[in-house]
């Protein structure tokens, strides 16, 4: 059986179940007349998703195995995913500069760059340029944390 199809099919059905439960919570304080129930359309979509997900699962069970030699979750890909999640988490708290340096540094190291001194210098210089671009030219303020 085609593992990927089966797993993705099951995940789709699972997701549609979770989302379906979400369609029942409604803390509507105000109800205007001739309102359209806001949950009908999403429910139709969710039902369709569950249906297609189950078809995918069944199809996957009947098909042959598909070989790829590039793993989906390898050390590198997991490393980058964890790094990105950390980036998202600390972006606000530590400000963009610190978190971006960490992210840039980390991604490059995970991708195999080993000359850390040059990397650190390159990151700092590039981020200072980006900061200048955003603050003075684009005039889009970037969040600053406790340090800067």
């Amino acid at each position: 059986m085609k593992k990927q199809d089966v797993i993705s099919g099951i995940l789709c059905v699972g997701l549609s179940l979770i989302l379906y439960t979400q369609t029942f919570t409604s803390d509507a304080v105000i109800v205007f007349e001739d309102n359209i129930n806001p949950m009908q359309y999403p429910r139709a979509l969710i039902a369709l998703l569950a249906f297609l997900g189950s078809i995918l699962t069944i199809r996957g069970l009947l098909q042959k195995e598909d070989k790829t030699d590039i793993p989906i979750f390898s050390r590198r890909t997991l490393g980058i995913m964890v790094l990105l999640l950390v980036y998202a988490a600390i972006f606000n708290a530590t400000g963009f500069f610190v978190s971006s340096v960490i992210a840039c540094f980390g991604v490059s190291v995970v991708m195999g760059w080993r000359r850390l001194g040059i990397l650190f210098a390159a990151c700092i210089v590039a981020l200072i340029l980006i900061w200048a671009l955003y603050t003075y030219i684009l005039r889009i303020p970037l969040p600053t944390g406790t340090l800067f």
Binding site: L84, S100, A103, C104, M111, C123
Partner: peptide
């Protein structure tokens, strides 16, 4: 490439924020 990917990541996230 590794440094480029790192910078692209940061640029993308900042761009989406901006």
């Amino acid at each position: 490439e590794p440094i480029l990917m790192g910078l692209i990541t940061v640029l993308c996230v900042l761009g989406a924020y901006g």
